[in-house]
Design a protein around this nucleic acid. Structure first.
Lengths: 147, 147
DNA sequence: TTCGGTGCAAAGGGTTTGCAACCTG
DNA sequence: CAGGTTGCAAACCCTTTGCACCGAA
């Protein structure tokens, strides 16, 4: 069993969630397909139901939601679609991403742009979070579209 | 007629869109309610159909989409909801926002965090855009929730 | 054995579509 | 008057819900 999946199942166990075939199948897919890029939830749903025809939307969506609560998965609303990414480390380290518009690939950035000068522009505001993402085409996808 | 609406109708005319009662009603609402904050499209839809019971979803959603194409409106996907904000100046000046999680109020920031150091971390990538938003509670909403 | 997890099927909510009638320019 | 725009109603897609059965611990 890959380390990432073992980590994830430990998180589940620790939080009194049971390890089921369906959850393992979803984790497998996420580790394979969504470790370095965001995958649309609808694609995950379609894939799971193709591979395991009896699996229900119910199971898929509820588990994704639980994975999110546990920090196993990161969810974001990009355009009209919800996408998820497997959280390789569960340390919840603060980081930002470049995201390829074509393939969804993610590149982590070193810096966080939330400087003190910016905070100073928001007197009286209680800041609870922020979002910083860069969009574009990764090198591979540029090559593809040039052909 | 408020200047903002005149500006918007000019954009419409310039692009060969007709000025209809419905579009004016929507612009009015947007100028009133969505000039300094994001408003959920569903709220706009509900309000328009309450004020003008014969107005159809069709009209509302298509017009919002056209307004977006023309730069009259800014759309964003926040969580599960689509929200829109009226673009006060159509100059498409580059700026970022603090957005209040409670009332949707927007405060413009002076700085853009896309530095050269960050770009340098993405060799070979073609950057097409970026997003930087700070979330939290504005002063007014903090006071409300404390009561 | 127990209760959390699942499959099934149906409902729900937001958004889009097709088309005839309408109205702006 | 013509073609863009609208209203109506239904379809659509994604997601959630209710409930009886199942199976991990």
């Amino acid at each position: 069993m890959p380390a990432a999946i073992e980590e994830a199942t430990n998180v589940l166990k620790t939080n009194n969630y049971k390890i089921t075939k369906q959850r393992l199948a979803m984790l497998n897919y996420l580790v394979e397909e969504a470790s370095k890029k965001y995958v649309e939830v609808t694609k995950l749903d379609a894939y799971m139901r193709e591979s395991f025809p009896k699996m229900s939307h119910n199971t898929i969506y509820r588990n994704i939601s639980e994975f999110e609560d546990l920090g196993i998965v990161e969810k974001q609303a990009n355009g009209d679609h919800q996408s998820v990414k497997f959280q390789c480390d569960f340390k919840n380290e603060h980081h930002h991403h470049f995201i390829c518009n074509n393939c969804g690939k993610v590149i982590e950035l070193d810096d966080c742009p939330l400087s003190e000068e910016i905070v100073a522009q928001l007197p009286g505001c209680k800041i609870s979070g922020h979002l910083f993402q860069i969009y574009g085409l990764c090198q591979e996808c540029q090559n593809l579209t040039n052909n």
